[in-house]
């Protein structure tokens, strides 16, 4: 499963990273270099494994509804790059159709 130049550009686009043209060949090489070390995993028999490892198989603790909102030590204006009338301001989306894209 070698990473192609196209794979890299697709992934960079998903990650919202604009890569310098000259960096692309190096990154393709580096990613393939790293991933080839990962191939050993494919030979490992994990048929017996039920569920992935890691956090709390005990189940998660839950919060009571309501309570005091968590405070902000500094006003939003102190860290926001641009605010107007209380809104965070970002550049307009490319097309208005994009504008209707939201939580799905």
């Amino acid at each position: 499963m070698a990473v192609s130049r196209e794979d890299l550009l697709h992934v960079a686009s998903l990650a919202r990273l604009a890569l310098d043209e000259e960096a692309v060949p190096r990154l393709v090489r580096e990613l393939n270099g790293i991933l080839e070390h990962m191939d050993v995993l494919r030979k490992v028999d994990t048929s017996g494994v039920t569920g992935a490892a890691g956090v709390g198989d005990a189940g998660m603790p839950l919060r009571e509804d309501g309570g005091a909102p968590y405070p902000l030590a500094h006003p939003r204006e102190a860290f926001a790059p641009e605010m107007r009338d209380g809104f965070f301001i970002v550049p307009r989306l490319a097309t208005h159709e994009d504008a209707t894209e939201s939580v799905e």
């Binding site: 107007r84 009338d85 209380g86 809104f87 965070f88 301001i89 970002v90 550049p91 307009r92 989306l93 208005h96 504008a99 939201s102 939580v103």
Partner: peptide, 21 residues
């Protein structure tokens, strides 16, 4: 179960989108 997103308001300011979270 999932969480909602905020609101993007596109027609309030020219060439800018206003975000209300």
């Amino acid at each position: 179960l999932e969480e909602d997103a905020g609101k993007s308001i596109h027609d309030r300011y020219p060439s800018a989108t206003a975000i209300d979270l």
